[in-house]
Write a protein that binds this DNA or RNA. Structure first.
Lengths: 293, 293
DNA sequence: TAATGTATTTCATCTGCAATTAAGACAATC
DNA sequence: GATTGTCTTAATTGCAGATGAAATACATTA
């Protein structure tokens, strides 16, 4: 078994997620075709994923009898999909740009050399950045950044934009929250509140935050609202992976989120809308001391 | 002189625009380096563009003495940059999808065959569609459309989204309209109103419309608002290149636009905001008989 | 000396081929 | 009869070289 492909790694992880969601325990039988269908791929990559899980001792293959779950790792102990080279480069690039280490204009070659990427990877990277309106093609050769590093106006513009959209998600006619999603969100927030704060919590805190706002946008039933919020998250993900306001602000943030969930669940959508507006208002007043957004 | 590259064609066109904006007339001298700098490219493609213009008899090259403008075509007679193969395929694909001729899921090969595109072109096409959230990659091989053809909900969602954002552009703190832009917009609207309506006017009507809304979004000074509106235009451009409501509605549309321009210019931003909301409201009530959006 | 003309270098794209890898069909087994 | 194992086919990606184009440096001329 050489190295599993990215798809195979992802599938391995999602297989464990499925098993957990189904409440399977050691000894349970796993059906290949069913899993393949649920994951929307053919059996081939699923098989490869299982081969990998077998290497790691999590399942056993019994000839002609299929797969047996040996042990179920905890959610946090999952393979933790190794980050993609492009993702890493993306975050590095965003930071270096903010630090002023990158010129306004640059060539594709520079990117390949600096971040040690192949051509296809570099292409994906630039496509992502262009999608986020961070860069654009120059008319001839080369690219340029679309905003100055550490532009203080961006912060306000972002929050003003979010305040236009996010409070309105609750008032869309098709707004409907999935109870399961609410429960999961509550749990994640309570977990964040009860666990001691560590530096490494910052990423999962960010992702919880992003999932909260994106989930609400999805619940609006308006795909354009959803897209816009998702895009905001993608943008923020590049620069805000650290949290510099301390645990105190984490608590405030979580409590505000929980209140919004309560209101929305109770059907007080106007209240939820106002709470969301105030939440964003308060968040917008936090300004990073390092000038990042 | 073989075929000029796309960049060279575009530059040729923009060179004429520059000359027109500068009020140059036949006999005027054109400085290569200055033009190259203004167009943000090197002299090389500018030279090629001039070679092409010379072929078409619009300029003359005097050895070591540079370029001389021979005649200035009217704005509408410009080269009219020939549409890109990808653009064409994009529009065709959007139409065929709406007509239900394309499956929900498809492979890249299918696209290449059906639209007779090379690999790089097909890649660009799919990247554009993915950027607009029209398609997404399946986990393994292949792609899928993200919405059903002729989904009637999209129409309402789009207008609800636009009504959240566009009326607020006027109320952004940095809102500032360029007087030159206002004048140009007025002129284009009056031209549309005074010219007889032809089928072929639909495209330029659409583009005028798009430029109107995008220009206002840009004037808001909020780059996220601007991005969102631009994206809406790109999406609409794929399906709304024809106009099925007759000249009567064109007139209404233009007059509403002109009113908004008047209010904004006079500084009545709250009024402009309300007018924009009503404008979108009215527009949202127009529904295409063919079920397209 | 500032502009144009020319040559060189760098960059980006395109093309075809090889290597992976997923999808789909069929056979074997419980 | 359903599920797993095996094989074949088709699709996708990656790579290297060739081509085309733009940027840059330098020479030349008014």
């Amino acid at each position: 078994m050489s190295q599993p492909s990215r798809l195979q790694q992802d599938l391995a992880e999602r297989i464990l997620d499925l098993a957990r969601d189904d409440g399977l325990t050691a000894g349970a039988h796993l059906n290949e075709s069913v899993i393949a269908r649920r994951l929307d791929v053919s059996r081939t990559p699923v098989r490869a994923a299982f081969a990998w899980l077998e290497d790691r001792g999590l399942v056993r293959r019994n000839p002609h009898r299929g797969l047996e779950l040996i042990s179920m790792p905890r959610a946090s102990e999952n393979g933790a999909s190794p980050p993609d080279a492009v993702e890493l480069a993306l975050v590095r690039l965003a930071h270096e740009r903010e630090a002023g280490e990158l010129d306004n204009e640059f060539s594709e070659q520079e990117i390949m050399r600096r971040y040690e990427l192949g051509r296809p990877e570099m292409k994906r990277l630039l496509a992502r950045l262009a999608d986020l309106d961070m860069v654009e093609r120059k008319p001839g050769y080369g690219w340029r950044f679309l905003q100055e590093p550490r532009d203080p106006r961006v912060h306000d513009e972002r929050y003003r934009f979010r305040m236009l959209i996010e409070p309105m998600t609750f008032l869309e006619p098709g707004f409907a929250l999935d109870p399961g999603w609410i429960a999961e969100m509550r749990e994640r927030h309570h977990a964040t509140l009860s666990q001691p704060w560590r530096e490494t919590s910052a990423i999962s805190f960010f992702e919880m935050n992003a999932a909260f706002h994106e989930g609400l946008a999805a619940a609006s039933g308006n795909r354009f609202i959803h897209s816009a919020v998702r895009r905001q998250n993608q943008l923020r993900r590049l620069s805000n992976y650290d949290w510099v306001f301390g645990f105190e602000r984490v608590e405030v943030n979580c409590r505000e989120h929980l209140q919004i969930l309560d209101s929305a669940e109770a059907g007080d959508l106007e209240v939820a809308s106002v709470q969301m507006r105030r939440h964003l208002q308060r968040a917008s007043r936090l300004r990073r001391p390092d000038g990042l957004d």
